[in-house]
Design a protein around this nucleic acid. Structure first.
Length: 430
DNA sequence: TCTGGGGTCCTAGGACCC
DNA sequence: TCTGGGGTCCTAGGACCC
């Protein structure tokens, strides 16, 4: 039996923790560049504003003056997420944090009554101590727990935030009411394809022969089907295991045409990527840089390209990674195009332990590591990018715009940021 | 005027080997 | 005219997730 605990309207709820005046209002949180909606309050959902809606299209759904639009503050959300998860970790065993706002866990007690009572209490505590409303769904598989959680949030008759989807008859009824596109693991393309075969609900899907699902689609979809039948077979990667790839990318606040500006952005992305590698005690085997134009501007010639380069020795050293990222940029840079987005990605990541040294490698790795540790320490103390590499010192014209930052943002300075420890073992999914 | 960022897994197809 | 078969590895691209 699986439980799924999920924060309600997470980013909006975080903003409300710091400003209760947002309660009861149509509130949305916007992505970088105040581009599109990435979180909505119940009131905003009721107004019909869809997830992912571009900010300038909000007026198609409701009077935009009634909608409070906020620029995302991910550091704040991460911090509140950590508090929620720490509290949950204390209450239930086997906590598997799946994303910033949700975590799976096993049934905390043998009997249903005790488990229910404990979880209702957890819901109350998280609200009281952290200020974030959460819901809990229980079911025989994670995919069904997702559905159960959704019901816990939506069904007005559920007052303590906990819903059980366990009895086969109940599961059957719910699956008949669940549109196929609402099933976890079935996105737009698959939903469209299944619908064209007459599969409209989760119940229709469950009745398909599994061998047909596998031959028409993939093992992944067959697993989803088996999950809906109540078999536990979904592989879930918790967030606190070390990454296989690390990416830093941004859509720029404006179109960029000069090499210097894009190089400045690449340097800062590479710095951030290297820093994250060190945080995870990992090294990258190769570095990829990509650039692309503005996909919405049909009046400009579009160019998009990427270049992946190996490192002589897997590394997490800022200078090495910045240099490689710039080498890659030089390979793909074309004068005369308008650039809107770029990114740096670390690949072929190895975690800790023995690192194969290149025979011809002249670099003193011990020295580099000490230098990086010093820089990280200074940046921790005085703020990100207090110390940075020379090419990265220009004014950052590429920086995304955030014109709707909430005025309580000073609060952040007084918050202690806590980090969940990252585990080494990639297979610790159970 | 204005359309995010950061991940994972699976599959098909090509290169290459014996 | 006729042009093996089976295996592995790698990569690009497509699908999904929050």
């Amino acid at each position: 039996m699986y439980g799924l605990i999920d924060c309600n309207n997470f980013f909006v709820s975080c903003e409300r923790v710091f400003d209760p005046r947002l309660d009861g209002k149509k509130v949305v949180v916007l992505s970088n560049n105040d581009g599109c909606v990435i979180a909505r309050s119940n009131e905003a959902k009721a107004a019909g504003i869809p997830m992912g809606c571009p900010a300038f299209k909000i007026k198609e759904y409701t009077n935009p003056h009634d909608v409070i639009q906020l620029s995302a503050r991910h550091i704040l959300y991460r911090d509140l997420s950590n508090r929620v998860m720490e509290l949950l970790g204390d209450e239930v065993g086997n906590l598997q944090v799946y994303s910033v706002d949700e975590a799976f866990f096993r049934l905390p007690y043998e009997d249903v009554e005790t488990s229910h009572r404990v979880m209702a209490e957890v819901v109350r505590k998280v609200k009281q101590y952290v200020g974030i409303p959460v819901s809990v769904g229980f079911a025989p598989s994670r995919t069904l727990a997702k559905i159960a959680n959704h019901i816990a949030k939506k069904d007005k008759r559920i007052t303590d935030g906990v819903y059980w989807l366990v009895r086969p008859e109940a599961i059957d009824i719910i699956l008949r009411r669940t549109p196929i596109e609402d099933v976890w693991g079935i996105g737009r393309r698959l939903a469209y394809s299944l619908q064209s075969r007459g599969i409209k609900t989760a119940a229709d899907f469950v009745r398909m022969p599994p061998s047909l699902v596998r031959s028409l689609y993939s093992v992944t979809l067959e697993r989803t089907q088996r999950e809906l039948m109540g078999h536990d077979c979904q592989i879930v990667n918790p967030v606190n295991i070390a990454h296989k790839t690390i990416m830093t990318s941004r859509t720029f606040g404006k179109i960029i045409t000069s090499y210097d500006e894009i190089a400045d952005a690449i340097v800062s992305f590479a710095e951030k990527t290297a820093r994250q590698l060190r945080n995870e005690d990992s090294v990258a085997g190769s570095i990829m840089t990509y650039v692309r134009g503005d996909r919405f501007r049909e009046d400009l010639p579009f160019y998009s390209n990427s270049c992946q380069l190996r490192l002589d020795t897997p590394s997490n050293d800022t200078m090495t990674i910045v240099q490689r990222a710039l080498n890659a940029l030089n390979n793909i840079w074309r004068e005369g195009y308008a650039y809107r987005k770029a990114g740096v990605m670390a690949l072929d990541i190895e975690h800790g332990g023995a690192i194969q040294l290149n025979l011809f490698d002249q670099v003193d790795h011990g020295k580099l590591r000490r230098l990086m540790t010093s820089i990280d320490g200074i940046n921790d103390h005085y703020g990100t990018r207090s110390v940075k590499l020379a090419p990265g010192i220009s004014r950052g014209q590429w920086a995304p715009s955030q014109s709707h930052l909430h005025t309580t943002s000073k609060t952040l300075q007084f918050m202690t940021l806590s980090r969940l420890p990252r585990k080494r073992d990639n297979k610790s999914g159970q």
